[in-house]
Design a protein around this nucleic acid. Structure first.
Ligand SMILES: [Mn+2]
Ligand SMILES: [Mn+2]
Ligand SMILES: [Mn+2]
Ligand SMILES: [Mn+2]
Lengths: 218, 218
DNA sequence: ATAAAAATTTAGATTAATCTAAATATAAAT
DNA sequence: ATTTATATTTAGATTAATCTAAATTTTTAT
């Protein structure tokens, strides 16, 4: 039996070690979960004992294969619920995270498989993140940050890095949504701000925005 | 802040004291929640301290107005989720209880209100139990048990008392569903078994069945 | 190479929920 | 009115998750 708290730690470790390859350190987990480093240490011992993680004192932690499978299962549930909330229950894309954080822990194979089918097997969540299938497989779309895009090229918006309400509301206000086409017009060397054309309208966005918007070439 | 465990106790107390009028005793709660009487005593003290229940040592417990409001809120969520599972996710009526038991604890006003709207404000769950509205109001339909029905009269099946898979599967096998019309043909004095006509078919059901099927006159 | 700083772990407590076994109170039976 | 049985509570432990403060290890800077 795995507890809700263990699940949250496993998911955090997975996210911090991109795709579960890098070693994750204690403070990063504490920061991510808004808890104290000493609590993290305790939990890492437990996760190691239960076979979900490889942990070496003072050296950091890695998920085992089993740990990764669990993480991906939780992420699958989280993102499917997010799709449900937006598509069926009229949530905005900045309102779903909190609720999905709880719904992701509901344990029922049938529930999640039926939900997946009901939503027509979506491949991405409302923020453009990929949804693993039943077997844990998912393909990360080839995407780059707006800040790394090349001048003159045409792109399509496919995801966000920052999922805070502040950022998502900014995008809403500027009619930037997933699927929106963007042409990179100018990069200002002084402050790295970027002028783009969206929906036949020209706007300038800050470096901060450019570093949190994912694009794909089109 | 109210914990998941406290919510389960409050709901159990509510259900045991029909509509929250009768005094509920420790052992009944322990039985309902599959726990030990000593654990219940501890929790009753806490619920009383938090203002959710009135509790007198050795005398039993009652929910306060606030406690009842909480109980009804949880029941509303439980039953709405049950409707969702059956109507949208193809669950059978004997499969929903376990999952709803967890979903009922998800805390989000918007979630439950939107779910309610999405389901078109259902008034009854898949077992015929009434769903409280936002304000906690619900009208108990006038219903009697098949065992108390009168000979020759025509009824409609409107609910079940026992919600076990065994019983629900029995009803499925005999094509008895909510809405099904039933005519009472004969009551056998020997074993209280009852002969009924359903869907132009005559069958005999045991007293046990008759005591768990709710009907309304039609 | 040493000292200072930062990261991490340990020690010792706390809170929530649970349990077993013993004590006490209430209810039922003689 | 006692005794017996049943119900309930208390006492004392346990497990999960967390915290603060102190100790230790690792990293960085001089
Ligand atoms: Mn979570
Ligand atoms: Mn998301
Ligand atoms: Mn529950
Ligand atoms: Mn029900």
């Amino acid at each position: 039996m795995i507890t809700l708290t263990e699940e949250n730690y496993i998911k955090a470790i997975y996210h911090l070690g991109k795709q579960g390859v890098e070693t994750v350190n204690t403070n990063a987990i504490a920061e991510a979960l808004q808890t104290k480093a000493s609590s993290v240490t305790d939990m890492l011992k437990k996760l190691a004992e239960k076979g979900y993680a490889d942990y070496i004192k003072y050296q950091g932690v890695n998920l085992t294969l089993e740990g990764k499978k669990i993480a991906i299962g939780i992420i699958r549930k989280h993102r499917l619920w997010e799709v449900f909330l937006v598509e069926k229950l009229n949530f905005k894309w900045d309102e779903v995270h909190q609720v999905a954080e709880d719904l992701e822990h509901i344990k029922s194979e049938k529930l999640i498989d039926q939900l997946d089918a009901y939503l027509k097997h979506p491949t991405h969540d409302p923020h453009g993140d990929p949804i693993p299938d039943r077997d844990g497989n998912f393909k990360q779309i080839e995407k780059i940050l707006l800040s790394q895009a090349t001048l003159g090229k045409k792109y399509q918006c496919v995801g966000v890095k920052d999922t805070s309400s502040a950022f998502l509301n900014y995008l809403d206000a500027n009619t930037i949504a997933l699927g929106t086409e963007i042409v990179l017009l100018h990069k200002e060397p002084f402050d790295q701000s970027i002028k783009i054309k969206i929906n036949s309208r020209e706007i300038t966005v800050s470096q901060n925005v450019a570093k949190n918007l994912f694009l794909k070439t089109v």
